[in-house]
Design a protein around this nucleic acid. Structure first.
Lengths: 233, 233
DNA sequence: ACAAAAGTGTTGGCTGTACACCCATGC
DNA sequence: GCATGGGTGTACAGCCAACACTTTTGT
């Protein structure tokens, strides 16, 4: 069989940036690196791709191993490839980001891997260029969420509009007028009102909603406008 | 020194999807593959990354070798990594897309590499998954151009508004009302009117404009709205 | 004079924003 | 009854699509 070349090999890794929401805070999932160098430093979840493994599959596998979650929202972000980004060997990293509901996430597996959730504002220093990866992911999510209903991926099946608003406010780090938000979000037709109310955060209680998955899928590619026109940040 | 593993190596390639505009048509630059297998089939411009080469640098290098152009608009698109995408060896491909003014492009180098411009509608079948790469690039450009002034990268220093409109119409494959287009684009403040007119395509002639590069850079990240709200396609 | 492309004006509807106000309920 | 968060109503401004019209000039 033909071969292309005999250059020194370059390793291919996949790193996953996992964002979660617990109804209160947007958080980032990190683990302590298991191998030298920089052992026990905080790191994204990563691993090398198998020789017969698709990139997307590798990302799913790594996420499954770490969170026990299948079929989560997972999207390729960017490929990082500076020659010196990993001091051990030349490694390029294909990054993926994921959005999950923290409460769905299984605690046991968390413990096995010593993974921890960090509030975005309290993210520790990460190894290599992982800090840059997180920054890039955050920018992409802001970009996408301004146009598409991706943030629903972070929510449980039932959620309230104030919860949703809080999520948007955290992602964009700015206050949103609740009255306009409610109207905009209900006008989108994406939500199905439930009978039940959540009384945990107010006396009056806020109605639970479910996502209309059909409409969500249909509208996913259309351009919506969930936040203001200002540049995020 | 520590080493990570001894898995069979995976090759890392860079492929460039180069779009051009000659004032009439949006075109795609392709070459005939120089090596076996599939020798002489149409292909994107690609190559393997050097062992000490950054991904972005590799893309610039490949583009320079093929077009003689430096400092062109070049943006990482997506990384393709299906195990069987290249039948010879396991190769992942980091793709970049580029937008250039065809008239700036030096013909000689073109001839050396046997590169040819194809109208988008007349693109031949490409090797491997290159067809999918082109499709992905086109989608991304439509997405981006709806919000950011990236299509100016395809134009020469001086251009007319009808030329610009024609470009948008081709990218989105739909007619645009010229009267609204003119107002929208002039209102953006991105254009500087020149004295001179282009008389080649009408009796009255159309004023030339130059891009206000400062404003272009400043507004690049802000969300604009150059096309309608419909989903492109 | 006329055709053909470039460019200006005008309108009405939709959408986003700001902000005043009412509602439900636990204390 | 009052504080607190949830939710509705209203009013204004800006933007955009649609379409009528004028301007320029080669033939």
């Amino acid at each position: 069989m033909v071969k292309y070349s005999t250059e020194k090999p370059i390793l291919v890794a996949v790193d996953c940036i996992v964002f979660g929401y617990d109804g209160e805070d947007v958080k980032l999932l990190l683990i302590k690196r298991a191998i030298k160098p920089l052992k026990d430093q905080w790191s994204l979840m990563g691993g090398f791709i198998g020789h017969n493994e698709d990139l997307d599959d590798a990302a799913q596998r790594i996420l499954l191993q770490l969170t026990g979650l299948k079929n989560v929202y997972l999207e390729q972000l960017h490929t990082f490839g500076k020659p010196d980004r990993d001091p051990v060997e030349r490694t390029i990293s294909v990054t993926y980001f994921s959005l999950i509901d923290i409460n769905k996430y299984s605690k046991q597996i968390n413990d096995i891997y010593h993974a921890e959730w960090f509030k975005l504002s309290e993210t520790p220093t990460l190894i290599f260029d992982h800090g840059m990866m997180v920054k890039t992911a955050m920018e992409k999510i802001r970009y996408q969420a301004a146009l598409h209903p991706i943030l629903f991926e972070l929510l449980p099946k039932k959620f309230t509009i104030p919860q949703l608003q809080n999520l948007y406010e955290q992602v964009y780090d700015m206050p949103i007028d609740n009255r306009n938000f409610i109207r905009k979000i209900t006008a989108s037709g994406l939500l199905i009102k439930q009978e039940e109310k959540d009384k945990s955060s107010s006396k009056r209680g806020a109605f639970y909603f479910k996502l209309d998955k059909h409409k969500h899928k249909a509208q996913f590619k259309s351009f919506l406008n969930f936040v203001g026109k200002r540049t995020p940040g």
